[in-house]
Lab assay of single mutants.
Amino acid sequence: YHADPSLVSFLTGLGCPNCIEYFTSQGLQSIYHLQNLTIEDLGALKIPEQYRMTIWRGLQDLK
């Protein structure tokens, strides 16, 4: 799967570019796929713990 530029820029902007593959490997290719994820969902996606809160907060800021 290839990540949408919106996803790449979002995660890169948060300092988490190495997390892109965790999302794309589950078929979550764009920022729209991420918008309703919970902190528990990020854990289920195996996002490293040190990035989960950062990503979750970033998603809240998009709403």
Rank of each mutant, 00 (worst) to 15 (best):
Y1A: 11
Y1F: 15
Y1D: 15
Y1S: 14
Y1G: 03
Y1P: 15
H2L: 15
H2T: 15
H2S: 15
H2K: 15
H2A: 07
A3G: 15
A3P: 15
A3H: 14
A3S: 15
A3Y: 15
A3I: 15
D4V: 09
D4W: 15
P5V: 15
P5H: 11
P5N: 15
S6D: 12
S6L: 05
L7F: 03
L7K: 00
L7C: 02
V8N: 08
V8F: 09
V8L: 15
V8W: 14
S9A: 06
S9C: 03
S9N: 14
S9F: 04
S9M: 04
F10G: 00
F10M: 02
F10S: 01
F10W: 03
F10V: 02
F10Y: 03
L11P: 00
L11D: 00
L11Q: 08
L11E: 01
T12V: 08
T12W: 04
G13V: 04
G13W: 03
G13Q: 12
G13Y: 04
G13S: 12
L14A: 04
L14Y: 03
L14V: 12
L14I: 11
L14C: 02
L14G: 00
G15K: 08
G15E: 06
G15Y: 02
G15M: 02
G15R: 05
C16H: 09
C16V: 11
C16E: 01
C16G: 01
C16F: 05
P17D: 09
P17S: 11
P17F: 12
P17N: 05
P17E: 13
N18H: 13
N18Y: 05
N18F: 06
C19H: 02
C19D: 01
C19Q: 12
C19E: 04
C19L: 13
C19T: 13
C19Y: 04
C19F: 12
I20P: 01
I20L: 12
I20W: 03
I20K: 04
I20E: 08
I20N: 03
I20D: 03
I20F: 03
I20C: 07
I20Y: 06
E21K: 08
E21Y: 09
Y22I: 06
Y22G: 05
Y22M: 09
Y22H: 12
F23R: 00
F23D: 00
F23K: 00
F23Y: 01
F23L: 04
F23P: 00
F23Q: 01
F23S: 00
T24A: 10
T24L: 09
T24H: 06
S25P: 04
S25L: 08
S25E: 14
S25R: 10
S25I: 04
S25V: 10
Q26D: 04
Q26F: 04
Q26Y: 03
G27N: 08
G27S: 07
G27L: 00
G27Y: 01
G27W: 01
G27D: 13
L28S: 07
L28D: 03
L28G: 03
L28Y: 08
L28N: 04
Q29C: 13
Q29A: 09
Q29E: 13
S30M: 07
S30H: 09
I31W: 09
I31E: 06
I31S: 14
Y32P: 09
Y32C: 14
Y32S: 14
H33G: 09
H33S: 13
H33W: 02
H33A: 10
H33C: 08
L34R: 01
L34G: 02
L34K: 01
L34M: 12
L34N: 02
L34Y: 03
L34I: 11
L34A: 13
L34T: 12
L34S: 03
Q35T: 07
Q35E: 11
Q35A: 10
Q35D: 14
Q35K: 14
Q35H: 12
Q35L: 07
Q35C: 07
Q35P: 04
Q35R: 13
N36M: 10
N36S: 13
N36K: 14
N36A: 09
N36I: 10
N36P: 08
L37P: 01
L37K: 11
L37W: 05
L37Y: 13
L37A: 09
L37N: 02
L37M: 12
T38P: 04
T38K: 14
T38C: 07
T38E: 06
T38V: 06
T38G: 07
I39F: 05
E40I: 15
E40F: 02
E40P: 05
D41W: 00
D41N: 09
D41T: 05
D41C: 03
D41S: 11
L42D: 01
L42W: 14
L42H: 02
L42K: 02
L42F: 11
L42P: 01
G43C: 08
G43P: 10
G43I: 05
G43Y: 10
A44M: 11
A44F: 11
A44P: 09
L45S: 03
L45D: 01
L45G: 02
L45I: 13
L45E: 02
K46G: 12
K46V: 07
K46P: 11
I47L: 12
I47R: 00
I47P: 00
I47S: 00
I47M: 06
I47A: 01
I47H: 00
P48G: 05
E49Y: 04
E49A: 11
E49Q: 09
E49P: 12
E49H: 09
Q50M: 13
Q50F: 04
Q50H: 13
Q50T: 09
Q50R: 13
Q50I: 04
Y51H: 07
Y51A: 10
Y51T: 06
Y51K: 12
Y51V: 08
R52M: 05
R52L: 11
R52C: 06
R52P: 01
R52Q: 10
R52F: 02
R52N: 11
M53H: 14
M53I: 07
M53D: 12
M53V: 08
T54N: 04
T54W: 05
T54M: 06
I55T: 01
I55Y: 00
I55W: 00
I55K: 00
W56C: 06
W56H: 14
R57N: 05
R57T: 12
R57M: 03
R57C: 04
R57V: 03
R57W: 06
G58T: 03
G58A: 12
G58R: 04
L59Y: 06
L59C: 06
Q60K: 14
Q60C: 06
Q60F: 06
Q60L: 10
D61K: 06
D61G: 12
D61H: 13
D61T: 10
L62Q: 08
L62F: 08
L62P: 09
L62S: 07
K63H: 03
K63N: 04
K63Q: 14
K63M: 11
K63C: 04
K63A: 07
